[in-house]
């Protein structure tokens, strides 16, 4: 049982990294981005390319995948989201467009890399017992948790200690007020995408470090990611972190009683239950500050 919890924490910290980025994007842009999962996949494949073709150590690809994810997100904003904002597109139109982005991105990766399951070239590390507990974890597992914690701490410091972070919070609380009080909205949006896309890209690498993957990984991750942000309260990155851990642990623990194939469904069921009781998530909405 404890073993499942441990595995759940590893998976949950990956969810936390990717979900907090998606939640941040929602908070600032009010965009429900169905392409977020495929941005995670993109990060993993950038790392795969650097790792396999250029022989780079996987840990070194982590910051590079962050940068690649950020660049992709900023580019997509210029190509898709900025024109839609200018034209005053509705929320549903934006969601449909994000589906289009998701399809295009995922299949561009299939075109380039093929659809087969693949993995990073990294040494397999032994799982060792954790003290006297009946839990086996590898050094990579620990490193993934630490890397996720560092990413989340970075996000927290960005939101609370920097001018751009404060501007983000102002914009998410009251867009009109932030606008008139001179917040540089374009700059905030750019940074939102840098952080959101970067965390997605880095999250993809972390995921790839824990298991083999293929081009569908982001799509399958999308459900637990959405479950995480809804459980935590959509638009609330801190809630997304909590939600990510909760969903991650719930999914892995379910393996004790259900066939593993239903793992992804468990996150969805938890989400539905939370929505029925708290229609606005556990930590509520709109509380970047």
């Amino acid at each position: 049982m404890l073993q499942f919890v441990a595995t759940g924490v590893v998976f949950g910290s990956i969810l936390a990294v990717t979900a907090s980025g998606l939640s941040l994007v929602y908070a600032i842009l009010k965009l429900t981005n169905f392409a977020h999962g495929d941005m995670v996949t993109f990060g993993a494949y950038v790392a795969l390319f650097l790792n396999l073709a250029l022989g780079l150590d996987v840990w070194w690809t982590l910051p590079l995948a962050f940068i690649a994810g950020a660049l992709l997100a900023v580019a997509l904003d210029g190509l898709v989201w900025a024109p839609m904002r200018r034209r005053g597109a509705g929320t549903v139109a934006m969601m449909i467009a994000s589906i289009g982005v998701a399809l295009a991105l995922r299949n561009a990766l299939v075109f380039l890399f093929g659809a087969d399951t693949t993995r990073f070239d990294m040494p397999v590390q032994p799982k060792v017992p954790l003290g006297s507990l009946p839990v086996m974890m590898s050094a990579d597992d620990w490193e993934v948790i630490v890397a996720a914690a560092v990413a989340i701490l970075g996000l927290h410091l960005l939101l609370t200690r920097t001018a751009i972070g404060r501007a983000m919070r102002a914009l998410s609380d009251n867009a009109a007020l932030a606008w008139v009080s001179g917040v540089d909205v374009d700059r905030v949006i750019r940074w939102t995408w840098i952080v959101g896309g970067g965390l997605a890209g880095a999250g993809g690498v972390l995921y790839g470090m824990t298991q083999p993957f293929n081009t569908n990984m982001g799509w399958f991750l999308l459900l637990p990611i959405f479950a995480a942000i809804i459980v935590g309260g959509i638009g609330n990155p801190y809630g997304a972190i909590l939600g990510g851990l909760l969903i991650g642990v719930a999914q892995e623990v379910s393996v004790a009683v259900l066939p593993t194939q239903y793992r992804l469904a468990v996150g969805f069921v938890v989400m539905i239950l939370v929505l029925l009781v708290y229609p606005r998530g556990l930590l509520g909405q709109r509380s970047l500050s």
Partner: peptide, 24 residues
């Protein structure tokens, strides 16, 4: 063939995006 099938879905995705931007 499977890569071309993927390319076709890329085109579907792009079509959806273009529609939503220019003629929702």
């Amino acid at each position: 063939a499977d890569r071309l099938a993927a390319l076709r879905i890329v085109a579907i995705g792009v079509l959806l995006v273009v529609l939503m931007i220019y003629r929702p």
